[in-house]
Every structure is written in structure tokens, then in C-alpha cells.
Amino acid sequence: MALPLTALEKTNDQKPGPSTHLGARVKKYIANQWMALASFIGVILIWEIYVRLAKVPAYVLPAPSVILQAMIEESPELLKHSWYTLYEVILGFLIGGAIGIPLAILIVYSKFAEKTIYAFLVASQAIPKVALAPLLIAWFSYGMTPKIVITTLMCFFPIVVNTVVGLNSTPSEMLYLARSLGASGFETFWKFRFPHGLPSIFAGLKVATSLAVVGAVVGEYVAGVNGLGYVQMIRAAFVRTTSVFAILMYLSILGIVLFNLISYIEKRVIRWDPKQQFERAQE
């Protein structure tokens, strides 16, 4: 005996279905992002026109078209170095997550860890981590290790902080519910607190990806023999500005790809509407 739904209750039908057709998706992307795209193209055009009209020398500011040309011409070498940088970024990011998330869990569950490790972590943010690079070289020598360590250090903090915030955001009623169902400590974590904290954890991971690239490049500046940061230093020393810009583009693309990769995973994992979740948690 189904009761009829009252007219007051309408379901939210605006959920977009997954469009499988690639062309349709590109069309939709353009429809959503046309303002961003238009302003981007606008800036590039103004830049190109200015450089050409004002006859700015290429060693000061190369035109976008020239940069693009360099990106293609130098691609064999730059791609080779991209792999080094990518490797450092991904490894540093993964290690940062692998240490950061468990540490955040420890901080949330142990008052002692919160008062000691967390307090120490927050205080340690006063140290510019970039300035640690020379020390890390002294400890870990040249090679990949110091770059991975500095990347890890850069990623670590946003991951820990956002995970702690996420795990602590569970509404008290939800914890009461868990207890009144007789959930064990592990179940309370795994079925209530962790999934509820996921949106915040992903926010931390996204911030960490951009910082990871910064970490790897700084490591390569200080003690590189490989990697995009290293090549950029060399090219800058020879005033090959066009090449420096081309490398900048490679680095940007690297960062964007990683960020979007995490966003993609996030969309797959978080199918619910986190905004609604937060609004409810704050009521």
C-alpha cells in the first residue's frame, strides 16, 4: 500500500546523466567554460599583438607563437626531463599521502598526538620549506632522494590538516547513531567518520598536487642534474627566455594534469553532493 508522494516533494531531477558521446562532452565543456576559454584566448592574443607591434625582444618577452614553437622543437629533451620531474612529484605526493593520512587519523584519535605532533606540525609551518633544500642536499646528496623528500614535505601539511578537519567534522548525532547501533571503534571510523571526511580529504589532496610540483622544481633548482627545474635554471643562465617560458608551460601542464587526475578520482569516489553535506553538518 504505497502512499502517494505529496505534491510538495519533488525530486531533484537536475542530476546530469553521464554523456558517453565524446563530441557531446566537448560541446558541454565549451558551453560551461566558454567565458574562461574566451578570456584565456583573449590574453594570449593581446600578448601576441603587443610583442609584435612593440617589437619586444624575445629574450625579454617572447610571443606566445614563438613559445609554442619552442615547446614543440625542444620537446624530445623537455619530455625526457618531464619524466624525472613527474616521477619526483608523484612519488613525493604518494609518500606525503601515505604518511599524512594515517598521521591525521592518529591525531584525531589520540589527544596526546594532537597536543604533541599536531602542535609541532602547525609550528613547523613557520619554516619556509624551500629553505630546507640545502640541508636536504647535505643529508641525502644529489640524486632524486632530496627532491622527493622536499616534495613530500610540501604535500604533507595540507593533507594532514584537511584530513584532520574532515574526520572531525562528523556531526555528533551521527556518532550517537553509531553508538546506539553498537558500532565498534573501527566501524565508526570506516563507515561513518572516514566517508564523511572524504570531501575535505580530497580538498587537501588537490592543494597538495600543486605544492608537489613546487617542491620538485625547487629541489631541482638547488641540486638538479635532471628534471625541468634543472633545465630551466641552465636556460635562464644563458638568457634563453623562450626556452624558459616553454619549460614553464610544461610545468603548468604537468600541474593541471595532476590536479585534474585527482578531481577525476574525486568525482568517481564522491557521488553525493558535499555542499549539501556541509550545510547539514553546520545547521
Partner: peptide, 9 residues
Amino acid sequence: FQRDILMEW
């Protein structure tokens, strides 16, 4: 509870 406390996920 007053709030439904559904698991959004």
C-alpha cells in the same frame, strides 16, 4: 533524530 543523519554516500 531531528536531522535525518543519512549517510550521503
